[in-house]
Structures are given as C-alpha cells and as structure tokens.
C-alpha cells in the first residue's frame, strides 16, 4: 500500500538572530533575507512521521516549501533527513502572502504534483505561529484535515485513526485518506540525520516552481492581494523591566494566574468527562 506523502517544510529565520531583524518602513514587511534560516522545528516531526509511515507501508516522501531562493541549505537538510524529493515554490509574486494566499499557492502545487495520499505539516511555526495554513490547505484541497495530532495510525488501505490534543484532554477520530494533518511535537522524536543521508541529499530530485509553473490567479497572491494587510509594526523593548509588584498574598497569587494565562498557559479548570462515540455516535 505505497503512499505518496507531501510534507510541508518551512524555512524560518534562526531565532538566534532575531535581534538582527529589521522592518522595511515602506512595505511594512520584515526584512529577513540576511538572517540564516533553519527548518521550522515542528516540521522535523512532520518529516519523522512521514518516514515512519514510509517504513511501514512504502511510498514516497516529497517536501514542499514556499520561500525565497536562498533556502537551498534547508531543502538539502530535509532531503538528508530522508525525504525522497523536494519542491521549492519561489517567485517574487509570492512574497508577502498571508496564510490565505500561502495555503492557496501550496495547494496548487500539491494538485500539480498529483496523486497525494497524505499531507503532513508541523502544528505551528516558530515565526508566524498562527497554525492556520494546515487547516486552510485542507480546505483548498477539499480533503479532511486536523491539527495538533498526537497519534496517527493507518489501519488499512484507506482507514486512519487519529488523536488530537485539545484543552485538558484529547479527541479521537476516524477518517479516510487522502487527508491533511498537522502533527504536534509530542507525536514522535525525530531521528538523527545520518552521514549517509547527508551524502545522498544533493543527488535527490529537487525542482523549483515559479508562478508560471502553477495554475494561479495572480490577483489572489502576494503582499497586495492577501486579504489581511499589515499595518504598523512595533518593535518591543526586550530589556527586563524588573517591575516590583507588592500586595496581599491573594493579589500576588492572582497576578501569577493572570500572567500564566496571558503567557498562553491553559489554567482552565473545566475537566473533561470521557466518552466514546463509536461509529454511530454522530447521528
């Protein structure tokens, strides 16, 4: 049951160089060409999941990236990890696309590659971090999609079982391929890249696709045509303020809770009652 799998791999600016990022005052976009890029860490888990599926069922792993042309090193890294083929979508016309436009472009490329059984992405990126592209990609491709997947099992030809992590618990799902999944970092531990993998990387097929190669509506892509538009940008002062907070013990405890929430940590106390639906549960 060989499977053709596309893994979306996003090169992102290396966080170690965030301090060197500047803003173009006219286009209000991030100037990051000079910053070295790394593979989005969550995407390595996506590649690992694809490798595990290929080991079990056979097939082909194709990486797909939409980025400026200077990310070749990252493409080679993904091939060294074990992917079979790579595509890079690169064109000045793509620049500045929001998630709507980005997912549209990626979807058109996946359609062009054709015959895809599974699309795997990481659950979020280190730079934008919106987690929106996987869901929107699924919509464009008109296939079922889930994100924050912590378990993925292919039962047979077309039946798959998934677990997704939700607040305070998890949900279980059944689905049929083809589908798109965004995997959580909890799902696996990426294997080490081997030296043999490194030596094979540059010999693997690698293709660049531009606007002319894809069947795209030019009026729906790029900075100007994205539905969401960037307004003002504010660089934050990162020095620690060391603001002293005094108060009653209740006030201090509440301050901690409020800031945990503001920091994105879930403190919701609503417990979940376990329930299994079975096949017919959703009538």
């Amino acid at each position: 049951m060989a499977l053709k799998i596309v893994v979306c791999v996003k090169p992102i600016p290396d966080p170690a160089y965030y301090k060197d990022i500047t803003i173009d005052p006219v286009t209000k976009t991030i100037q990051r060409e000079a910053i070295p890029t790394i593979i989005n860490p969550a995407d390595k888990h996506a590649i690992e999941e694809a490798l595990k599926i290929k080991e079990k069922f056979g097939g082909k792993i194709i990486t797909l990236s939409m980025a400026p042309p200077n990310v070749i090193k990252n493409i080679h890294e993904a091939l060294a990890m074990g992917a079979d083929e790579a595509y890079l979508l690169t064109d000045k016309k793509f620049a500045g696309s929001d998630t709507w436009a980005t997912s549209y472009i990626l979807a058109k490329a996946i359609e062009k590659i054709g015959g895809i059984d599974l699309v795997i992405t990481g659950t979020e990126t280190g730079d934008g971090g919106t987690s929106q592209v996987p869901s929107q990609l699924g919509e464009w491709l008109k296939i079922p999609h889930l994100w924050n997947v912590i378990e993925f099992k292919i039962k047979n030809e077309k039946e798959v079982y998934l677990k997704t992590k939700i607040e305070n618990g998890f949900m279980e799902w059944k689905c049929k391929l083809p589908m798109a999944i965004a995997v959580s970092r909890e799902i696996n531990t990426p294997r080490y890249t081997t030296i043999m993998g490194v030596m094979k990387a540059k010999k693997k097929p690698f293709q660049k696709l531009t606007f002319d190669d894809l069947n795209l509506d030019e009026k729906r892509i790029g900075l100007v045509n994205s539905p969401t538009q960037a307004g003002n940008l504010h660089l934050l002062d990162l020095s620690r303020k060391g603001k002293i907070i005094k108060g009653s013990k209740e006030e201090l405890a509440q301050f901690i809770i409020d800031n945990l929430k503001a920091g994105g940590i879930s403190v919701e106390a609503d417990p979940i009652i376990c329930s299994c639906e079975g096949e017919t549960g959703n009538e």
């Binding site: 939700i166 689905c175 959703n282």
Partner: peptide, 12 residues
C-alpha cells in the same frame, strides 16, 4: 457527508 468522524473525547 464528512469523511472525518469524531469517535471519542477524553481527559489527559
């Protein structure tokens, strides 16, 4: 007619 069906929900 969704191909994706939720079959259960549980706590951590």
């Amino acid at each position: 007619e969704p191909k994706l069906k939720p079959v259960g929900i549980c706590c951590h």
